[in-house]
């Protein structure tokens, strides 16, 4: 059996922990060929490292979550949000109007007190 034939098997099945699954001629070859044994060790090592990548995560940028949630947000949720915004707008306008009215009252009262003084 040639080393190339053995290497083909090793590349196909590096995830197997033992050699029992391998065909007998390959097992015999592996038992005596140091070069193929070394190759098997390398393949298994690469496989182990690949498996270890399972626990490693790649962090996305912070905006991704919001973008996903925005894209799947149902229209009903958008409508639900509107009244709260509307309430905020109305409150803002009401506050501005109140401030304006209060200012006008102060102005008028000042003017009227000035007029009374002039008249006297």
């Amino acid at each position: 059996m040639l080393c190339d034939d053995v290497l083909l098997h090793l590349a196909q099945t590096p995830d197997e922990a033992s050699n029992d699954f391998l065909p007998l001629p390959i097992r015999h070859h592996l038992a005596t060929c140091l070069s193929c044994q070394a190759e098997q060790v390398h393949y298994r090592r690469v496989h182990r490292e690949l498996q270890s990548l399972k626990t490693i995560t790649v962090l996305p940028d912070e905006r991704l979550l919001d973008d996903i949630l925005d894209s799947v947000r149902p229209p009903a949720t958008v409508i639900q949000l509107r009244p709260s915004r509307r309430r905020a707008y109305v409150s803002g306008i009401a506050a501005a109007a109140t401030a304006g009215a209060a200012g006008a009252i102060v102005l008028v009262s000042k003017l009227s007190s000035k007029g009374q003084r002039l008249a006297g």
């Binding site: 790649v58 962090l59 991704l64």
Partner: peptide, 17 residues
Amino acid sequence: HRAFEELVRETYVDTYT
């Protein structure tokens, strides 16, 4: 929908990876 959002939060990093 909140459960769906939570599901996204729990899984999106893994999916991104």
